[in-house]
Design a binder for these strands. Sequence first.
DNA 1: TCCTAAATTGGATTTATTACAAATATAAAG
DNA 2: CTTTATATTTGTAATAAATCCAATTTAGGA
Lengths: 142, 142
Amino acid sequence: MDIKTIIRKYREMGVRLTPQRLAIVKSLEGDRSHPSAIDIYNRLKDEYPSLSLTTVYNTLQMLKEMGEVAELNLHPEKSLYDPDVTPHSHVYCIRCERVDDLPYAEPPEALLKKAQDLGYKVKDVATIVYGICKRCGEIRDH
Amino acid sequence: MDIKTIIRKYREMGVRLTPQRLAIVKSLEGDRSHPSAIDIYNRLKDEYPSLSLTTVYNTLQMLKEMGEVAELNLHPEKSLYDPDVTPHSHVYCIRCERVDDLPYAEPPEALLKKAQDLGYKVKDVATIVYGICKRCGEIRDH
DNA sequence: TCCTAAATTGGATTTATTACAAATATAAAG
DNA sequence: CTTTATATTTGTAATAAATCCAATTTAGGA
Ligand SMILES: [Mn+2]
Ligand SMILES: [Mn+2]
Ligand SMILES: [Zn+2]
Ligand SMILES: [Zn+2]
């Protein structure tokens, strides 16, 4: 996710370059926190008081279709968004909902094989590690 | 998930054996469809016209805590429930939401290692294969 | 500067899930 | 079998994420 690339793509697509879209893209650039739509909205609403949550959702949807952000389904309540679209995995703290990146690792070949045997055309594989983060572990420990 | 085992567990826990709970447990036994709470509710409401969705959720929650069903978060909209709690993975059709079982496969050691290095106490790993099922592939193909 | 299609906004709507209080029913005791 | 205490169910209301929609605003080309 690189602002210049995205601005160029926007122009190529004939899509308008609005302050809201730019703000969302800028806020996402280099962000490793895996924010939800509401997180992004809350971050920006002071600087853009008229910003609407709908615009955040619309822009995320568009960025997703452009392949510039990935939507993560780590837990049932809400989707998280990741401006790093290179293949990698995640660890998710089941206590505080913290998310950290894990490197890319080749998924077990047997799974892809079996999915194909069942007739599936495989598009993606997600590996999610669930655990308790350092801080949450320490809190419980005293 | 075995009815007799569950009935015994219920008795041991001093939990009442209501017709609703038994119906939900029976409907889940051997079910490989990975139903949502509403799927279960719809299946049973003819036979138990007074059944409430709340009871379905309560019972699923209880079965989850008993370790008799697993909650799957394959997509953001809703949780699916799986009476097969042995470790295994899933393929999810992104067109029709069909879910099939995949065998258990050891997750990449590097991921667990890295999660631990980050300070996480690992509790579980989920591998989800996303793809297009046979039927959905054929539909698009003509 | 003007104009128009595209985008934003705010509010309503949908859908999954949880909360809660009143009604009901399990199962133990008499 | 009847009574009773209380666990459970039910129906409805409340939450929360996400989407829909019509009215208003605005980007950007003419
Ligand atoms: Mn990430
Ligand atoms: Mn399964
Ligand atoms: Zn934590
Ligand atoms: Zn399908």
